[in-house]
Every structure is written in C-alpha cells, then in structure tokens.
Design a protein around this nucleic acid. Structure first.
Lengths: 340, 340
DNA sequence: GTGAAAGCGCTAACAT
DNA sequence: ATGTTAGCGCTTTCAC
C-alpha cells in the first residue's frame, strides 16, 4: 500500500512524540506566538520527523470556513481569464486564501454542476468570470455566500460585479481614429458577448459627438474569429465606399477581420485601419501588432477579491459595482486614412 | 448577517424536519437504494424546503478522501495547458472526481506552496503539468499520494508521466519538409523547455536518416516569441545560403520567427517554409495558419487521470510512462522550396 | 428498512 | 504557558 492514508500522522501522533498535548501542537502549527521557544522546537522537531502535514479538511470543518475562494470560468481558452486569475490569486494569496478554479466550456449544465460542487466544498466566496448562468442560479447561490461577477453585471441583490467601462473604451477607439483623420469608421458588433452592446453604444455616441453620425455603420459579428470574418465580408459586399477604419468588438474577431482583409489583398493599415478590444496576448504578438483597448485584467481580479474580503469582514448587504477604466494601446494596425 | 454560516441547514435539521434519523438522510443523499420510496420522498422534500446542501468538508473528513484531484500548472497563459485541463476535467468528472487547479507563474517558490496546499487539502491525486520543481519535492509528495507528470518525465519511483513522443514529432516535420524538396532545413532550438532536447535530437536523427547530415543547422532559441526572433536573426546573420525551411521548437517561437521574417521582407512560404510545434490555438488562426505538430492534449489529460485512477484502485507500485503520438498538421507556412 | 452511537482530525473555549 | 474537553457535520458499523 504505497499511499495508505491511514499511515498519515495526525496531530495526536505529533503530540505523543513531542510529549505535549494536541492543543499545543495546534498552537504551534498555526504559528501562535504564545508558545515557549522550548516547546515550539520540540513540536516542530516531532512534526518534521513524522512528516506531519496539517489536515485542512478537519480544520475547515471545525472552523466553519475553508479559506478557499471558488472561481468559475466559462472558458479557460480565452486568455482574458488567465490574467484575471493572476490578479485573483495574488490578492487572495496575500490574505491567506487559496483559489479553486473550475472551468466549464461554455456549457450551462456543467456550469451549474461546477457551482454546486464549489458550494458543497464550502468555499468562502465565489468569483464568476463571465458566466452564462441564468439569474436564478446566481440569486440562489448569493444567499449562501459572498459572490462577485467579473466581466458581467447583474442586478441581483447582494451580488457585486467588476466590469470594464465599455462605453469609455469604445470612445477611446473612435476618438483615436477620428484624430487620425478617419470619418468612415465602421463597427463590427460583438453580438451577445459580454459588453458588446455597451461597446456599440459607445461607438455610436462618440461618432455622434464627433459629428460623424452619417458615417455610423454597424455590421453584425461576434466575439470569435468567424465573427470578424463575416463582419468584413458584410462590409465588402455592401454598396458604396469602404470604411477607412473598422472598430472590431474584440481582439479575436479583429484577427478574423485581419485574415479576411489579407486574403482580399486589402492592406492594413494603409487601406484600412483596424482596432480590437481586450489587448489579449494575441494582440501584442509582433506578427499581429494590433491596436486595441486594454482592460486591466489583473486589477479586475484583485478588485473581485477585495469585494469578497470586504463582504466577508463587514457583512455588507448592498451590492457594489466596480467599474475599471480601459486604456487605448496604439500599435501597428492604425494609421491616417489614404489620401485617395 | 447575509451569509451567516450558522444558518446553513445540516443533516440533523433535515432529519428533524422529515421526522427520521440522520442516518436515513445520509442514505438518501448518497442515493442508496435501500430506502423505502416513502421515506425517500419525505427526506427529499425536507431537504428541498430547507435548501439543504451536503457538506463536502464533513464528508471528506470521515471518508478520508476528498474526491478531488489537484492540478498544478506552471503557466496558465500557455494555451497548451487549457486543453490538457479539458481532458482532465472530462475524465475526472466521469469518475466522480472534481479538479482543483493551482497556477503558479513559473515561480518555483509559489509552486512549492501550491503543492503543499493541495496536499493539506488532502486531494486524492496530483497532476503536475510541466512543473519546474526539483526532484526532491516530487519525490516527497509522491510518498503521500498518487502523482503524475504531464509534459515532463522523471525517474522518481512511483511517479507516472504522460508525454508526447517528441522525437517522432520532429521526424514528421523533417520528413514533410524533405518530401517537399527541402534540403537546407534549419532548427531553432527550444533551450531548456520541456521536450526541446528530444525535438532537436529527432531533427538531427531524421536529417541523418535522410542523408541530409551536412545540412543540419541548429541555432539556440527558447519557447518564447523572443526565442524565435533571435533564432531567425542568428540564421540571417550567418554566412552562406539561407535555409529554405526552418523547424522552430514550438508555436510561440515560430510566431516570433514569422514576425522577424516579415520585417525583413522574407516571404513565407515562398522564400522559406516554417514549421512549429504544439498546434496551439494560435497556429490555427487564419491570419497565421502555421504548419505544426499536434500533441493530443485532451488525450494527455485523460491519460493522466486514468493513471491516477488506476493507482488509486490497484495500489500499483511501479511507475508507468505513457507516450502519446503527435501528428503533423499541414497548413500554409510550408511549400516546396523556390526554384532558385 | 431504520436508528443509535462512535469517531474522522482538528480548533476553541475554558481551566489550571 | 499548557492541558482538557466538547464539538464541527457527516459516514459507518452494528443493533433492532
């Protein structure tokens, strides 16, 4: 039996070996400073000799808290989330909390199962990153523990959220393009994606504010490469002059747009400028070098943890919605329009 | 107190409400079929009314197993791992195991902490994906629970591994290029990356097998975009004719190579063919369209879980090393060499 | 088929 | 400063 659990030493074994009570061992293991140096050394030595490792399960049971935060990710493949997690793990770790990540590939049923499991594991707080759930699942869970949504907002009572200010991000894009001299600025929409509606509105409003209402042009798309391809095709198929710049709803779709434009022999940025949204690692690749809008993802993760911790400490009841500010990252896919 | 844990109903509350013993409630909750339909309905109704949710912490304590597998990822940003996790979660879920993912950004100290925490949480098995740890950490942990390495091999006793057959992958690349007519096939090395040495060897051996020993050309690189850029620069800076094809150690480095070639006005695949390794989502992007070697990542995750389950069931003692077979994915960055 | 009782490994009063 | 004791919420014999 290589891994017989029964051989694992318990706190009692350590106490016996050190010749002290198990409470004392507990105090030492938890780093309490009220223990004499002598006894502490004794206990530590015994623990080391036995290869003792505290049992977090037993501890969680009696303390009625696990020091664990659960994170439900709708899609691990989206690099967006990897960076949110960075912030989450950093902030949580600093306060002694560990993170359990559960991923569910855009599958609502699996998402519900993941949520249930996390709840049964008695995590102390829950971070839902861009979840697909219905409101009722969120509401039900929110009655059991502190919960925050990232990159999605909900008006369920007691559910906090951290989102980026999409209208502002869209405004930055349009202003950048307008200042380069563009007027025919089109937008490839993000469909039902999180924040897509806000980005489109921001685009429309800023176009209007710049007196470019007559050039507003929105074609349907989605947060996928396919979405960007279709968007460009729709733009190319239409009558009238091509736009000189295209604001695509996110980076992945912008990549699809770039690919289609390249296939058609349309040069970027000479013939048309392209802007994405998210500043994923993709955008920074030299071979892509996409102008885009950066969401401060690690900050969003940190904010989510801060909300959880605060709710844990204060039993705050009202929901808080944190809005983080995006910034424009200018790279190689935008330039002044052709003189033509 | 919105989230007072004290209000959570326990099995005793359910028993009281249903007018039965808590043992009976336990039987019902665990789906035992030895309970009369009548009592079962009674218990289920009581549980639903109270919003009862079994406490996995208490259950784990008494059962001395958590039904949890721990996964330590050295780098969540590497899309390679996201797909391994897919396979892990699928296979584990099918057997009633949940997965806890711990990420550590290529930080050895954090990796050790993550490992310790998982051990304290008493996960039933551990999957280490491309870990940086030293052998002694692995050996120590392997005495406590079943453990498998993914994308890394170790000769520590009782530690299983799942790796891809790198020499074969490299052979596929060289054969593909040779069959296209290439002879001056260079290799940009992956440095200390997992499998890099095997890929280089496979390259050298296949070149030799094809009678191309005199054309063997290896320049140093790494598994990063920078690595690919430097590799290409080294190749360009050298005397003599340029290679007509370059096998780059992985996809990310291949992207760096593509970027540098583009900047120098060298066309791919007309002037030089490029092949990567890994078939990450990046490679499939239409705008990149990289010929590369696919590792069956979800399979690797499933295999890892299978090894864990088997060890849990059988108390097998010998280490097993599973080798999965890579395949070549031909896309747009390879073509016959120029007639020149 | 159902209930009573013991105990998983630990923490947290409370004593001393 | 250290020991004693009573659970945390559940599963699991073992009776009935």
């Amino acid at each position: 039996m290589p891994h017989a659990t029964s051989v694992r030493p318990t706190i009692i074994d350590v106490a016996a070996r050190a010749g002290v009570s198990k409470s004392l061992v507990s105090l030492v293991m938890r780093g309490e400073r009220t223990v004499s140096d002598e006894k502490r050394a004794l206990v530590l030595a015994a623990a080391a000799e036995l290869g003792y490792r505290p049992n977090a399960v037993a501890r969680s049971l009696v303390r009625r808290r696990t020091n664990l935060f659960g994170v439900v990710l709708s899609d691990l493949h989206n690099p967006f989330f990897a960076e949110v997690i960075d912030g989450v793990q950093e902030a949580a770790g600093a306060e002694g909390y560990r993170t359990i990540i559960s991923t569910v590939n855009l599958n609502t049923a699996a998402e519900q199962r993941a949520l249930d499991t996390l709840l049964e594991l008695r995590v102390d707080g829950l971070i839902l990153a861009s979840p697909m759930f219905g409101v009722q699942s969120i509401a039900a869970a929110s009655r059991e523990l502190p919960m925050v949504l990232v990159a999605r907002r909900s008006d369920v009572a007691r559910v906090d959220s951290v989102t980026n200010d999409d209208p502002t991000g869209a405004r930055l894009v349009v202003e950048h393009l307008a200042e380069l001299g563009h007027r025919r600025i089109a937008h490839i929409d993000g469909g039902r994606g999180a924040g897509a509606a806000e980005r489109r509105q921001g685009y429309e409003q800023t176009m209007a504010a710049r007196g470019l209402t007559e050039f507003v042009r929105v074609v349907p798309g989605s947060y996928t490469e396919e979405g960007g391809r279709h968007g460009v095709e729709a733009l190319l198929a239409a009558d009238g002059p091509l736009p000189t710049a295209i604001f695509v709803a996110n980076d992945l779709a912008a990549l699809g747009a770039l690919a289609t434009l390249a296939e058609r022999g349309i040069r970027v940025p000479q013939d048309v400028s392209i802007v994405g949204y998210d500043n994923t690692a993709l955008a920074a690749l030299r071979h892509i070098n996409l102008t885009t809008v950066d969401q401060p993802r690690p900050d969003m993760g940190r904010e989510a943890v801060a909300l959880l911790l605060e709710r844990l400490a204060s039993h705050r009841d009202a929901a808080r919605h944190v809005l983080v500010t995006p910034t424009l990252v200018v790279r190689g896919t935008t330039a002044p329009p052709n003189a033509s």
